[in-house]
Each structure stands twice: as C-alpha cells, then as structure tokens.
Amino acid sequence: MVFLTIANLIRCRGPDEFWRKRKIFRLAAHYIGRRRNCYSVAVRNVHHALVYATKARRLKKQDMKDLWDTRISAACEQHNITAFSMREGLERSNILLDRKSLSDLAAWEPKTFQCLAAVASRKLHLDGFIDGTDQKAPTGKNLNLDNVILDDWLKEKK
C-alpha cells in the first residue's frame, strides 16, 4: 500500500490491530452467530470463557481430591478403620502414600489396600493411638491379623 501523505499513514491502523482481532476471532471460532463474527461481542464472550476456564482448572483439582477422599474413606470403612487413622498409621509406619495412590489401591488393588489397613491398624494398636476425631464408628468387618506378621517390623521402626 502506497501512502501519498503522512496523514494517510497515521490513519492506517496497521498489522497490530489485525493480529489482535485475529487472536480473539480464533478463540471465538466455535461460537454461533454474532458471537463469532462481531468483534465487540466476540471479545466479551471470549473473556468470559477464559475466566471460566481458569476457575474450572482449580475446581477440577478440588473435585479429584474429593473423589480420592471418598474412595479412601469407603475402603477404610470396609476394613473397620477410619481414613484419619489409616493415614496416621501409615505415616507412623513410614509408608508415605498420597491420596491418589491410596485411592488407586482402594479401587484397583483391594487386597493390597487391605494389607495397608492391617499395617496401619497394627501400628496404631502398638503405639496406643486412640482416634478421637471421628465420632462415627466404622461398620466394616474386623481385620484378621493372625496371618499378618508385622509386629517385629513395626516395633523396629519405632
């Protein structure tokens, strides 16, 4: 484009505006109607969508934590131990597993989770720990700890 006067050059908005608008229109490409074609409408809707996407990332993390806690507490109730006691017993036994790992074990490896519950229960019994946080007693079956040889290992870790 050839400008004969400096006034025409100043009035030209240049490539910056084109690329700025193009970025918004690309984000609004899947919208319907004026929300995708009209810049002033598209920019509002894109900004709203970006705000919701930012909030959703935090909510997704919180939802996953809630799901993991629900799975752990349900599996602990089956083995007659509270989730707090389970975590405390595992921590005292130097078994450091996070929520996600315990949740996966509870869902996909029930025998492994049962052994972890037995280890936690035995360690809390040896330490004389009393769980006063949960007023609701678990309704699961009592663990048969006769065939689990843990006493020597748990006593040496003390």
Rank of each mutant, 00 (worst) to 15 (best):
residue 46 V to E: 01
residue 57 R to E: 03
residue 66 D to Y: 07
residue 114 Q to D: 09
residue 55 K to E: 12
residue 74 A to K: 10
residue 58 R to T: 06
residue 112 T to A: 15
residue 51 V to F: 11
residue 67 L to C: 00
residue 102 L to S: 02
residue 102 L to K: 09
residue 89 G to E: 08
residue 52 Y to P: 01
residue 94 N to R: 13
residue 66 D to G: 09
residue 38 C to Q: 05
residue 40 S to Q: 10
residue 80 N to S: 04
residue 106 A to L: 08
residue 73 S to D: 13
residue 112 T to R: 14
residue 67 L to A: 01
residue 91 E to L: 03
residue 105 L to D: 00
residue 65 K to H: 08
residue 47 H to R: 15
residue 86 M to G: 04
residue 86 M to N: 02
residue 87 R to H: 08
residue 45 N to W: 14
residue 95 I to L: 12
residue 106 A to D: 04
residue 58 R to Y: 07
residue 96 L to H: 13
residue 64 M to T: 04
residue 42 A to N: 03
residue 94 N to T: 06
residue 97 L to H: 09
residue 86 M to P: 00
residue 69 D to L: 13
residue 37 N to F: 05
residue 79 H to F: 11
residue 52 Y to T: 00
residue 46 V to N: 03
residue 83 A to N: 03
residue 83 A to D: 07
residue 96 L to K: 13
residue 52 Y to A: 13
residue 64 M to A: 12
residue 97 L to K: 15
residue 110 P to N: 03
residue 91 E to A: 08
residue 53 A to L: 14
residue 87 R to D: 10
residue 109 E to S: 12
residue 85 S to D: 08
residue 38 C to F: 05
residue 88 E to K: 15
residue 113 F to P: 13
residue 83 A to K: 07
residue 40 S to T: 14
residue 44 R to H: 06
residue 67 L to F: 00
residue 41 V to L: 03
residue 58 R to C: 02
residue 65 K to Q: 06
residue 72 I to H: 07
residue 89 G to R: 12
residue 103 S to P: 06
residue 70 T to H: 07
residue 46 V to F: 00
residue 97 L to C: 04
residue 84 F to C: 03
residue 63 D to L: 11
residue 48 H to E: 07
residue 72 I to A: 02
residue 100 K to C: 08
residue 73 S to C: 11
residue 90 L to S: 02
residue 72 I to L: 11
residue 47 H to T: 13
residue 90 L to H: 06
residue 50 L to V: 04
residue 63 D to I: 02
residue 103 S to Y: 06
residue 93 S to V: 06
residue 103 S to D: 10
residue 92 R to G: 09
residue 51 V to S: 05
residue 59 L to A: 11
residue 64 M to P: 00
residue 93 S to I: 07
residue 45 N to P: 10
residue 92 R to T: 10
residue 99 R to G: 12
residue 79 H to A: 09
